[in-house]
Design a protein around this nucleic acid. Structure first.
Length: 208
DNA sequence: GGAATGATAGTCT
DNA sequence: GACTATCATTCCG
C-alpha cells in the first residue's frame, strides 16, 4: 500500500501555473511486480495550451497530444530525442489543454529497482536516479506505450499521484529548461535547496 | 568545473 | 526533411 492518500481531482482542475507550485512535495508512486516505487516531486514546469508556443498543445489537438485536452489527472507520456520519455500530469477541465511536466523526484522507496532500471552500479548516488525528466521515467519504467493516458487519481492504476501531508520548505521559480520558444517565462518551480533538483548549470545553458 | 557534442526515433510540415 | 519539454560523454581551460 503506497503512503498517503490519492489527490483530489479538483486539485488539478486549475491553471498549470497554479497547480505547479502546489504539486511540489506530492508523491509519485508505482506498483510493479510486487515492488513499490515512490518518489517525492521536487521540480516541475508549467505548460499551457494556446498562448504558450513552447507547449506541445500549442498547435491544437493531434494524435500525440490528445491526453492534454482530456480531463485532469491523467499521465501524458511522450518519447523525445529518440531515447527518452517524459511525464506530464494533465491539468484543467476536459477540452482545455494544460499540464505540469515532472522534471525531478527525490527517491524514497524502491531505490534498488530504480538503480537497475537506470542501468547504474549499485553504488550510484540516489540523486542520479530521478533528477531529470528522462531519468525519472527510466527509473520508474514509464513509456508512452505503457503509461500514456493512465489516470493518476485511480486507486487501481499502477501509477498514482498521492499526498502524505509533507509541506515543502520553500519554492524557487526560474525559467523553463530545454525549450527555444517563450524560454524567458518563469514557469519552472523547484523545491528550495533540494539536492535532487537538476543542477543550476543546466539552467544557465544558452538557448540557440 | 564548465561548455560543446553526438546518439537516436517519433511526430508533424 | 526538420525538429525536438534529454542525457552522457568528450573536450577545453
Amino acid at each position: 500500500m503506497p503512503p498517503g492518500s490519492l489527490i483530489e481531482r479538483s486539485f488539478l482542475e486549475r491553471a498549470p501555473d497554479l497547480v505547479a507550485p502546489d504539486v511540489l512535495g506530492k508523491l509519485l508512486a508505482r506498483r510493479v511486480s510486487g515492488t513499490l516505487l515512490v518518489g517525492r516531486i521536487v521540480e516541475v514546469e508549467a505548460y499551457f495550451g494556446q498562448d504558450d508556443p513552447a507547449a506541445h498543445a500549442a498547435a491544437g489537438p493531434t494524435a500525440r497530444n490528445a491526453v492534454l485536452f482530456g480531463p485532469a489527472g491523467h499521465a501524458y507520456v511522450y518519447f523525445i530525442y529518440g531515447m527518452y520519455s517524459c511525464l506530464n500530469i494533465s491539468c484543467e477541465l476536459e477540452g482545455q489543454a494544460g499540464s505540469v511536466l515532472v522534471r525531478a523526484l527525490e527517491p524514497l522507496a524502491g531505490l534498488t529497482q530504480m538503480t537497475n532500471a537506470r542501468g547504474l552500479a549499485p553504488s550510484a548516488a540516489p540523486r542520479l536516479l530521478t533528477s531529470g525528466p528522462g531519468r525519472l521515467c527510466q527509473a520508474f519504467g514509464l513509456t508512452r506505450a505503457t503509461h500514456n493516458g493512465v489516470d493518476l487519481l485511480d486507486e487501481h492504476s499502477d501509477l498514482q499521484l498521492r499526498d502524505d501531508g509533507f509541506v515543502v520548505p520553500g519554492v524557487v521559480v526560474t525559467p523553463r529548461i530545454g525549450i527555444s520558444k517563450a524560454a524567458e517565462r518563469p514557469l519552472r518551480y523547484s523545491v528550495d535547496g533540494n539536492p535532487c533538483v537538476s543542477g543550476p548549470k543546466r539552467l544557465a545553458r544558452p538557448i540557440t
